[in-house]
Design a protein around this nucleic acid. Structure first.
Length: 487
RNA sequence: GGUCCCAUCGUCUAGUGGCCUAGGACGUCGCCUUUUCAUGGCGAAGAUCGCGGGUUCGACUCCCGCUGGGACCGCCA
């Protein structure tokens, strides 16, 4: 094992920052931090046609949002840069030349058409698609002819029949029969390297000690070990995490699940700490019954050998619960600050700005009802803006119109006479009013609560009165009376 | 089709031969607190540990086979 723990995530900016990428990043991050190692970001953008700036930005911002800053990589740089493969292109050529020199690789002049025809033929016979090795033993004159004709050539790595085995940090011993691979391409005909190649070279050049990635890379690992050997590199240690699945058990995808960290989670009002905590539990557990962990606690507790081997389904229900839990743990001020950006209604936004303390008081009442920050707008709206509702809502289930009307009228009187809006004064006053009318507390309290909130579900009448205040409350109750008596 | 990986409540999971008549969490249901909804507290239902063989005094745990699911088989990463 290398002396210093150096791990990396190697995203290719071809799409939004994904739940699966986030989890791989997290485990890498935890592993690095646990051992005071380095967490590196290397952007694998050798495929010019597929990558875009937006994706890169989304990935980098997402990482930061989740609380994972990198020790080396884009923007921060580092001793083994550049950290964009696009800027490292020149580095790979000598290695390719070296492989060709040593007759461990060769130029392949086959065209895309020839190759796909070959593949189709093989699949038609139900055989495993594998390169025939057509160009492997070309004579010097044949090569000359191709070159004269200006045929472009890719470079293929020679795979000799053998068994490749390695000890995976989480899967244990894994073996592959390399004779099934065929000679694979390591350099495109335009001279750019393919993932298998650039990945191995960069990991070596960047002194990566552990490659921790998704299980979908398991076969690549065998190929990369072969390449590393041919190049004279010492392979890093490998560890492959099981996949995260859709409900139907297929590989988690955009089509079937919300997977974008920024669009589906950040924008919907999820908290980064909740997401991190939840994602960490997808495949890992502490061995205790504890489930709530801050990032620092995860770093302290994380053990790679406690990462499971079986895939897990992403369960939004539990994430939602956890998000609510994290919201409840935050102070009113924190929730208010984090939640403000989710208020889209201009009128409400202005009202909130005008009355910051009132906003805080409102948040205090709805705090433990929130599962998402984005629910704040709907939850606090009626504190600022008189509610609209059907008059019939005012009548409690076990009450009637006459009782409700009487209750509301009595409430107006009682509330008007209140000296303060403290709970200890409001509560006995309203309960007393109900008693005087010989109706149940609930009949009166339901009506008052609806008059104030316009909702069938809301914080309690006493608390609402306290926050909304005497004058406004009386107005709302009066307007409720008007609603009921003039249908 | 081939290769590899995987298989405990609906879901995330604990479990490394006897502590398991299988534990926790989410979800579901019920009760309590209560003016509603949440929160909080208590409780219930929910897994013959995919199936079949072994090994063993004893298997959720070890071995083999089967079945099922997934991933990978590109001049994508």
């Amino acid at each position: 094992m290398a002396e210093e723990i150096r791990v990396r995530i190697a995203p290719s900016p071809t799409g939004r920052f994904h739940i699966g990428t986030a989890r791989t990043a997290l485990f890498n991050y935890l592993f690095a931090k646990k051992f005071n190692g380095k967490f590196i970001v290397r952007v694998e953008d050798t495929d010019k046609e597929r990558h875009d700036e937006d994706s890169l930005k989304d990935i980098l911002e997402g990482l930061l949002w989740l609380g994972m800053s990198w020790d080396e990589g884009p923007e921060v740089g580092g001793p083994y840069g550049p950290y964009f493969q696009q800027e490292r292109l020149g580095l790979y050529e000598p290695f390719v030349a070296q492989l060709i020199d040593k007759k461990l690789a060769y130029r392949c002049y086959c065209t895309q058409e020839e190759l796909s025809a070959e593949r189709e033929a093989q699949q038609g016979k139900n055989a495993a698609p594998k390169y025939s090795g057509h160009c492997r033993n070309l004579t010097a004159t044949e090569i000359d002819q191709y070159e004269q004709a200006g045929r472009p050539s890719a470079v293929r790595f020679i795979v000799e029949p053998q068994v490749v085995s390695f000890d995976d940090l989480i899967k244990g011993k894994v073996e592959f029969d390399a004779s099934l691979f065929g000679d694979f391409v390591i350099q495109r005909s335009d001279g750019t390297p393919l993932f298998v190649l650039s990945n191995v070279i960069d990991d070596n050049l960047m002194k990566i000690s552990h490659v921790l990635r998704g299980e979908d890379h398991l076969v690549n690992t065998a190929k990369q070990i072969l390449l590393a050997e041919a190049l004279g590199f010492l392979s890093p240690q490998f560890g492959h995490f099981p996949m995260i699945l859709n409900k139907d058990r297929s590989k988690m995808s955009k089509r079937k699940n919300p997977v974008s960290i920024s669009d589906d989670y950040k924008a919907k009002g999820f908290l980064p700490d909740a997401l991190v905590n939840f994602i960490a539990l997808l495949g890992w557990n502490s061995g205790t019954e504890r489930e709530i962990f801050s990032m620092q606690e995860l770093i302290d507790e994380f053990e790679i050998n406690r990462v499971g081997t079986s895939p897990s389904i992403f369960d939004t229900e539990k994430l939602l619960w956890m998000n609510g839990y994290y919201i409840r743990q935050k102070s009113i001020g924190e929730v208010a600050e984090a939640g403000r950006v989710f208020i889209t209604n201009d009128e409400l936004q202005k009202a909130v700005t005008a009355k910051p303390d009132f906003f805080l008081n409102a948040i205090a009442l709805v705090h433990d009802r929130l599962k998402l920050l984005s629910e704040i707008e709907d939850q606090i709206e009626y504190f600022f803006i008189s509610p609209k509702y059907e008059p019939s809502l005012l009548i409690a289930k076990k009450s009637n119109e006459a009782n409700t009307l009487a209750a509301l009228k009595s409430a107006v009187k009682v509330v008007s006479e209140l000296k303060t809006m403290g709970l200890d004064e409001v509560e006995p006053a309203l309960r007393g009013a109900a008693e005087d009318l010989k109706i149940k507390d609930g009949e009166l309290l339901w009506a008052v609560r609806v008059a104030l909130s316009g909702r069938d579900a809301s914080p309690g009448a006493f608390e609402l009165l306290g926050v909304i205040g005497k004058e406004e409350s009386v107005n709302r109750i009066k307007s409720a009376i008007k609603k009921l008596s003039t249908p």
